[in-house]
Amino acid sequence: MSLATQDSAIRTGRVTRTLIYLVLLLFALFYMLPLYVMVVNSVKPLDEITGGGMMNLPQVFTLEPWAKAWSSAQIGVDPTGLKPYFWNSIKMVVPAVIVSTVLGALNGYVLTKWRFRGDTILFGLMLFACFIPFQIVLIPMARMLGLMGMAGTTWGLVLVHVVYGIGFTTLYFRNYYAVFPTELIRAAQIDGAGFFQIFWRILLPSSGPIAVVSIIWQFTNIWNDFLFGASFAGADSQPMTVALNNLVQSSTGVKEYNVHFAGAILAALPTLLVYIVAGRYFVRGLMAGSVKG
């Protein structure tokens, strides 16, 4: 793929090239600016910020705001820091990502390799899930969670995110498996492998790229979700995003901007990390099947 990109690059003169890089650099700087502001201000004492000069590098370097945001900042009524909420988020995100990805893979497998009457209609309906706005389902979902006795629990949130994510993960896996050779499935059938054996032994080991796409997509979406977290979480199951909001919005005392900046970075770090670790597979997986070879 990289070879092809090189070959198809349009050859341009040196002046044009310099200009292109200059513009790109400018845009990059523009986009990096918020991150710069956040990082710089999160390692300053508060008086440096309130004294003006948001753009300046810190005169006194301190990690105090980070420590405070993590373990002792006032969130709601308790001075717990973001730490317990971070774990709430992890406890919600990890099972939700795993379950929705596995179910998406199973759906994709059935929709492409065990075709049945009306499967395309069913798939079309599942695609609707990708377009339903969050707000519409809030009240019915709250009622359902209440009926199931899962209101205000982490597992309730996991369920909500799994249900909401299945549309996307099914889409990814279905399109990926659509180009997976059916002869392999037939060969495995003749070899005596059953439905799940084919799934585990033949299909899943070849699903690396699309699994990465699904995991990154789901992880980012669920981690960053605020609305469901704010609506359905109980006091002891609130995710990081809700806690961050509570930290920043608290109306008592001095606004500790440096702590807020540190908290915001903390809340964004996991998704950043996931993307850096698996990002190159993301593009590769999204492109899979679209280009031959």
């Binding site: 002869e183 392999l184 037939r186 060969a187 495995a188 033949i202 080991p205 070849s206």
Partner: peptide, 12 residues
């Protein structure tokens, strides 16, 4: 036993 046109060898 069957031999397929694409050989259908399990790639993994």
């Amino acid at each position: 036993a069957m031999v397929f046109q694409s050989y259908a060898l399990y790639p993994n």
